[in-house]
Simulated scan of single mutants.
Amino acid sequence: MTRPVLNIALIGSGFMGRAHALAFAAADRTFDLPLSPRVTVLADRDLSTATAAAASLGIPNASGDWREAIADASIDMVAVATPNLLHAPIAIAALEAGKAVYCEKPLATTIAESEAMTAAAAASGRPTAVGFTYLYNPMIALARELVADGEIGEVTAFRGIHAEDFMASADAPFNWRCEPEQAGGALADIGSHIIAMAQHLVGDIASVSGRLHTAYPTRRDAEGNDRAVTVDDQMDAVVAFANGATGTLAASWIASGRKMGLAFEISGTKGSIGFTQEQFNELKLFRSGPGRTNGFTTICAGPEHGDYGAFCPASGHQIGYNDLKTIEVKAAVEAAAGLSSAAKSFADALAVEKVADAIRRSHREGGWTKP
């Protein structure tokens, strides 16, 4: 039986735009989706760029104007994979045009824009999804299940970090990540992932006490000019969850040696869970009990763990980043079809942005701050 088609306009053809295009194609072949996703047009900053990217990705149409793509009556969903500064205007225009929207994180560059996007989604009644890719890992689904089922008892603490080293050198050039208007800084760029992870696994964060640190006050741009850096290289925060648990969060892009150090440990009254994205096909589980050999057990991802089995029939063979993106697309398509979905909505992403904003305010004002 032929499935209905979900026609998609993909806005942006950089790293994340390409990841979206590959994931839409893979999801249609990997899962039994309620709708068949088809990227029918790719829009970018100019027609030449869009045409070349569309040709390389097998997308039939190209546009140099995202407004033109949104105005196309045949489009059902708009996938936003642009620089952060464009998330709000594109998403709001798409929602007002009656399209479902699948947007990369962070939701927007300011709280006001994030709130406007969430309000537009509510007013339109159209489904939304946000690209918190790492939440779609089958091992993270298992961790959430273990917590919810009380396998580690009552959660007492969450210690989480997202650490990378792509800005660790003083010679790393000034780029868009250093620009505040692009929601720049480690907190905005990668901190949103560990905040989302904490709230996904433990629950709402009720208050924060945070500090931001700029290790390199100037960086040299592509033209050789020294530019002032006014965003953070590292964020550290103490958090209190609404359920009474405590925790720490950190985000750093100057963590020498770390390539994808998104990691956490959840402590409970009966055990603990440990994870790192650098070995994201494994989960560490400790259950309290007597015995001199008692310790963490390594659980290897396998076909019994949610969507892993759609990619591989054997445990320990591992899935990769693009597979996580494919699982994310599955959730976005299910949301677009009006079905119950694992997709994180604009409202969920706004909750993440509110915590990030509270950390910034705590740094400026001192003391504890509520999101």
Rank of each mutant, 00 (worst) to 15 (best):
A343C: 10
G320Y: 05
I299D: 01
D307I: 11
D357V: 08
L324W: 04
Q318I: 09
G302C: 06
V352H: 01
G316Q: 02
C312N: 13
K330A: 07
A336S: 15
A358Y: 08
T293M: 14
E328H: 04
D323P: 03
F346D: 02
A351I: 10
R361G: 09
A349P: 01
F311G: 06
L324S: 02
E304T: 05
G366S: 14
A358N: 11
L339V: 11
I319G: 00
S345A: 07
N294V: 12
H317W: 02
K330G: 05
D357Y: 06
T298D: 01
G316W: 00
G289C: 13
I299L: 12
H305S: 01
A314Y: 03
H305P: 06
C300P: 00
I327N: 01
S341E: 02
D357T: 09
R292Q: 15
E365N: 15
E353A: 14
R360A: 06
T326K: 11
C312Q: 13
Q318A: 12
V352G: 02
K354F: 03
L350A: 06
K330Y: 04
N322T: 07
A310M: 11
L324C: 04
A331W: 05
A314R: 10
C312Y: 06
K354S: 13
P313A: 03
P290Y: 07
G295P: 05
T326V: 12
T369Q: 15
T297Y: 01
A335M: 07
K344A: 05
W368E: 15
I299R: 05
G338A: 13
A337S: 10
G309Y: 01
G295D: 09
T293K: 15
G309D: 04
R364C: 14
R361Q: 13
A335R: 06
L339P: 11
A356G: 11
G306Q: 08
S341D: 04
G309I: 09
Y321I: 09
S340R: 10
G302K: 05
K344H: 04
S315N: 00
D357A: 14
L339F: 06
E365R: 14
D348K: 08
G309L: 08
G306V: 09
A310V: 11
A347V: 10
T369F: 12
S362Q: 14
E365S: 15
F296D: 00
A347D: 08
C312R: 14
I319D: 00
A310T: 09
L324Q: 04
K344S: 03
I327P: 04
G306F: 07
T369L: 14
K325H: 01
